[in-house]
Design a protein around this nucleic acid. Structure first.
Ligand SMILES: [Mn+2]
Ligand SMILES: [Mn+2]
Ligand SMILES: [Mn+2]
Ligand SMILES: [Mn+2]
Lengths: 217, 217
DNA sequence: AAATAAAATTAGGAATGCCTAAATTTAACT
DNA sequence: AGTTAAATTTAGGCATTCCTAATTTTATTT
């Protein structure tokens, strides 16, 4: 049985590698807020357990078993986020911390019950795809709103869940999944954009725009 | 902040003392399935933290702060059990293990959301009272079915949640909360009882009968 | 009151998983 | 190519929380 912390390592290695390729000690250290020395030690243990391969000084890569475990944690995390929003009426900016702990203690039985209660959802409240039980993960095509040309209208399909304050802010100006946004103008001096949402106009910084993923409409 | 395991100690000390009085090292050791030596060590730490008082070789007693913490864990445990049954349709014999882990990671915000979603329930699926947020716990009057005289009819108000197999068995013969049971006969040679439930007759061992709590009807 | 049994505590040690500081390896720059 | 800087790993420690074995205290019997 993988410990709670092992599961966090595996999940974050998967995320940093986007499913494929090597991940460095320092990027993991940054993401987990754990010293590089401690990360290096844990990596050694995970390599012994067979969930990843380690090329010293070069980085780590998940084995098939490690990938499967990582996707299972991600599935539990996202199902739980969905449940918090749909059933307990949490806001999308309140759920990541709760799911971060719960993903590790959710039994397989509970995973099934929640999946069923929600009607087998395909995405979580931030638009992130929910892996299937056997580790399939389809990433829907989308691009950051910061890349969209002025004049076009787009639909929100995903918002990065990395920052709760940002989620709360974009919700407050009317942004939610599937919302249509019209890009009126792009400012050259700071790459911010002037957008129209529900007939209200807002200026959105390039950083925020790069956290909102859209498809053409 | 109390660790997960500290919380288990406090909760079980509370339960063993029924709210008041001293608890011995060995009874805790039995209940938690942890060696007496380890229990003795942990007790020393909890005494330093101020959640209990320890009289060496005599036993421990929760302080007011320890009692408050214990009741809060019990509240979270029972609310979560209720939620598992009412919302996710778990059976009453499947929920204790899940709640045992979840009681420690449930945030106060989530405690409130669940309490609200359930309409502020007063008892859990086994009939155990749910403490209020500020530590009030009313124990409804009831007595074990093993004490009931032959010929009387009683209503089930609580079933001990200590054994999952027993819970599953008593459910299979039709016993649930509020069910009426008629005591037809008490066997002297083994103290078992012949009872009538929904027009079916069953022989119930004295041990099982002592785990079912009833009120007169 | 002394011997024995039971309960509780202390001693010494193991596994996890974190840290800082030191050493090593790799990468980048004259 | 040689020096410096950055990334990584190793060394040595610490906090938790468990264990078994040994010791101490309390309770029970003769
Ligand atoms: Mn986590
Ligand atoms: Mn999410
Ligand atoms: Mn517990
Ligand atoms: Mn219960």
């Amino acid at each position: 049985m993988a410990s709670e912390q092992s599961e966090n390592y595996l999940k974050n290695i998967y995320k940093l590698s986007s499913g494929e390729g090597k991940v460095t000690t320092s990027s993991l250290s940054d993401k987990l807020q754990i010293s590089p020395a401690s990360v290096s030690e844990m990596i050694k243990k995970l390599a012994e357990e067979g969930t990843l391969t380690h090329t010293p000084y070069k980085g780590v890569e998940l084995t098939d078993e490690g990938k499967k475990l990582a996707l299972r944690i991600i599935r539990k995390h996202r199902l739980w986020e969905m449940f918090l929003v749909e059933v307990l009426h949490f806001r999308w900016d309140e759920i990541d911390d709760e799911a971060e702990r719960f993903e590790h203690i959710m039994s397989d039985k509970m995973e099934d019950k929640i999946d069923h209660a929600l009607g087998h959802p395909l995405i979580d409240p931030h638009g992130d795809p929910i892996p299937t039980k056997d580790g399939e993960l389809k990433c829907p095509m989308s691009h950051p709103m910061s890349d969209v040309r002025a004049g076009s209208t787009v639909r929100v399909v995903r918002v990065s869940d990395s920052n709760s304050e940002m989620l709360q802010y974009v919700a407050s100006i009317g942004i939610s999944l599937n919302k249509e946004i019209h890009i009126k103008q792009k400012m050259n001096f700071d790459n911010s954009m002037l957008v129209k949402i529900d007939n209200n106009e807002f200026n959105i910084s390039s950083i925020i725009a790069s956290n909102i993923f859209v498809e053409n409409v």
